[in-house]
Computed example of a mutant assay.
Amino acid sequence: MNINEFVMNNEVAIRLGFFFGVFAVMALWELIAPRRALSLSKAVRWANNLGLVFLNSFILRLLFPAAAVGMAAFAQEQGWGLLNYHEVPQGLAILASIVAMDFIIYLQHVLVHAVPVLWRLHRVHHADLDYDVTTGARFHPIEIILSMLIKFATIVVLGPPVVAVVIFEVVLNAMAMFNHGNVRLPAAVDRLLRLLVVTPDMHRVHHSVEDDEANSNFGFNLSWWDRLFGTYRDQPRAGHEGMTIGIHKHRDPKRVTWLPGILALPFVGRITGYTINRRSWSDEK
């Protein structure tokens, strides 16, 4: 059995093992060294946020049984994609695939902030009134489906090895839990880590209620993209303990914390001009 067959046969076990392992580590870290005091009941938030995670997982398995790994295997069989068309060393193909897919995730994240109708979906993620490990997986089912379709298109064009897709999925989930963690890192460690990857303090800025701060630090894994494309912001103006998490117009815990309200959130209110080009540069300090 080669590596691709092993990964295909054990993909679910690999992903679940890493998910529960990283989740347990982050949950314990948040308990031992929290960065901020939470404003709402953790039990209520976790029950609803994790309920959304399980709902999304069920929907994805129902609609896309083979998921991204299956698409990568199919593309490989058909010879689709740049890396299947050209002979590339396996190690280089894996590394290039992970970096390229991370760049697409960055672009997708910018897109859901820039287009009002997509922002309505994505604001489910931002409307959480607290910021912890469960926020990292809090996305509306429609956004999750759109994200999977974008991933499929990326795989068809790129042709990444199956093992690269599994590594990327595992790393993406793990990093989403890490950089959404309500954890405290020494300042020197944070500065060093964010030269390569997105840290909790770096991404927390993105969850500020202030529009110009929310429209920055879009990366999930690599911090390069924000620095390269000018969307990087070092710290929130009010500091990490003083900043307000969430969205200005969505502060009612019943509407943004409980699962029925979370699912209804994209369809509440008028479509307005919440777009990335409203970012306020005059507030830069």
Rank of each mutant, 00 (worst) to 15 (best):
F139L: 10
M175V: 03
S280Y: 06
R61Q: 10
H207Q: 09
A100S: 15
H122R: 07
L50H: 00
M8Y: 13
M71T: 15
L222K: 12
R45Q: 12
G91F: 05
G246C: 03
V256R: 08
A24M: 11
L149M: 11
S280W: 05
E30T: 13
F229G: 06
K285V: 12
F229P: 09
H122W: 02
L38F: 03
A93H: 02
R270M: 10
L118E: 05
L107D: 06
E284Q: 10
T199F: 11
F178S: 05
L185F: 13
F20Q: 10
F168M: 11
H122Y: 15
Y85G: 04
R45G: 03
S97V: 14
M243E: 03
L38W: 02
R278T: 02
V12L: 12
A176T: 13
E11C: 04
R251Q: 15
R35S: 07
W225S: 12
K151C: 03
R279N: 03
A75C: 15
G17W: 11
P34E: 02
N9R: 12
M177S: 05
W80E: 07
G269K: 01
E143P: 04
I32P: 04
A137D: 09
E169Q: 13
H180L: 10
F139Y: 12
I59D: 01
P34D: 02
N4F: 02
K254Q: 12
A33K: 10
H113A: 06
Q235V: 15
R279V: 14
I271V: 15
V170E: 03
A27W: 15
H86M: 09
A33H: 06
L195K: 15
R251L: 05
G51C: 08
